[in-house]
Design a protein around this nucleic acid. Structure first.
Lengths: 215, 215
DNA sequence: ATCAAAACTTACCGATTGGTAGAATGCTGT
DNA sequence: ACAGCATTCTACCAATCGGTAAGTTTTGAT
């Protein structure tokens, strides 16, 4: 019945399939960028040759879009796993951003965040923009709800969403280079900035010892 | 004879020179991305042929780096034009970010912000990273001063600088697609988020007339 | 064992593109 | 007019890369 046939060489712990190709490709995409990663690179990292990839994917772009879709689906899965429709906008924002950070700092997530629409075909771009717009709309809706229920205080939710996405999308870019900074640290700090700001003259009751902030 | 005299932004219509090449190239870079812009594209947009560009620049990368350097120099010029060493960290932060936004949403600035180190040669990457690090250090220093003088309240200035750069660098990316949003709007809104945050439950005593009664 | 489909390889194509050689044209001072 | 340099053009190369054709090996059902 089941034959794992692990008599292959190398660290190949399985047969070639779409998942393994996506993992290898996304790893290279996030290390070197999509355009700087050739199909030969992907193939070599899997110890196969290029046409083997084309047996499983019809194009290089198809691999990228599969990664995008996978990251998007995982994100939606995380969001649905935490049904918080009754919570305040601000609390939903926290959950949303936590999930967003988890996804976008993962390997597949970088494809979802950092793909340049320029490099995609018209159809691919359409799909990509659809995913991004869906996520954008969710954040907008959360912010709008927060404004309604009073848990969020901001002017234009559109500009606010841009500011928030900027912080987190950029984090997806540098976080691979800063493994010493954990996702939890990033999340806590960014949420603090987003929620409380950094102005030192307005002092909310968050008074603490002025201990040297260990620069 | 002239090795560093390239900062004249005169748009002499008619004669080809380094400035006009940089303008045309950066326009295409920010529209289509560096890698998706061929030297033939740049040449065509100037109604010349490719070798004409290579008479003025030794490589495609040299054009990009010239744009980066120009944007950096303009930024430094703006900063020095407003000597605020006596001001509080928070006020210097405002000036810094205003100037940063002006530069990075300009044509040349996009090269300074969005260039991917992958695409650069080792020497080019070194130069690019030096410019970026210089700017990063300035923001870090401003934040640190703000923490010292009490005008800024934040934990790790490094993470805070990442958050801030994320917002603004990302803005450089989408702002060309949203011409209806002015730089002033972006600046005011982002500064509001950075300084005050968006939490509706904590009421900083910034004389806010009660907005949205709490449930 | 047999055979067909699945999975993968070798070898190649065609288009793009950064960059160059060398000829042609323009410009400037004398 | 002419020398001589500056500038731009025509024509081309070499490398890269996405993708394919066609053949070969592996797998699995019968």
């Amino acid at each position: 019945m089941d034959k794992k046939t692990a008599q292959r060489s190398k660290h190949v712990r399985g047969t070639l399939n779409t998942s393994r190709i996506m993992e290898a490709a996304s790893e290279l995409f996030y290390l070197n960028g999509y355009q700087n990663t050739s199909m030969d690179d992907v193939a070599a990292s899997l110890s196969v040759t290029k046409p083997a990839l084309y047996y499983h994917f019809k194009s290089k772009e198809a691999i990228l879009l599969a990664c995008v879709q996978d990251a998007f689906d995982r994100f939606q899965g995380l969001m649905q796993a935490q049904a918080l429709s009754a919570a305040s906008g601000r609390d939903r924002l926290c959950v949303f951003l936590k999930n967003y950070l988890v996804i976008t700092t993962g390997n597949f997530g970088i494809s979802l965040v950092l793909s340049e629409p320029h490099v995609l075909s018209p159809e691919g771009r359409k799909l990509y923009v659809r995913y991004r717009n869906s996520i954008n709309r969710q954040l907008m809706q959360i912010l709008t709800q927060g404004i309604s229920d009073g848990s969020v205080r901001t002017g234009d939710p559109t500009l606010t969403s841009y500011a928030i996405f900027g912080m987190f999308n950029w984090a997806a870019k540098w976080s691979p280079d800063k493994p010493e900074i954990s996702n939890d640290e990033i999340f806590e700090h960014f949420m603090s900035v987003i929620l409380s700001g950094i102005d030192g003259d307005t002092r909310p009751e968050q008074e603490g010892p002025k201990s040297g902030a260990a620069p």
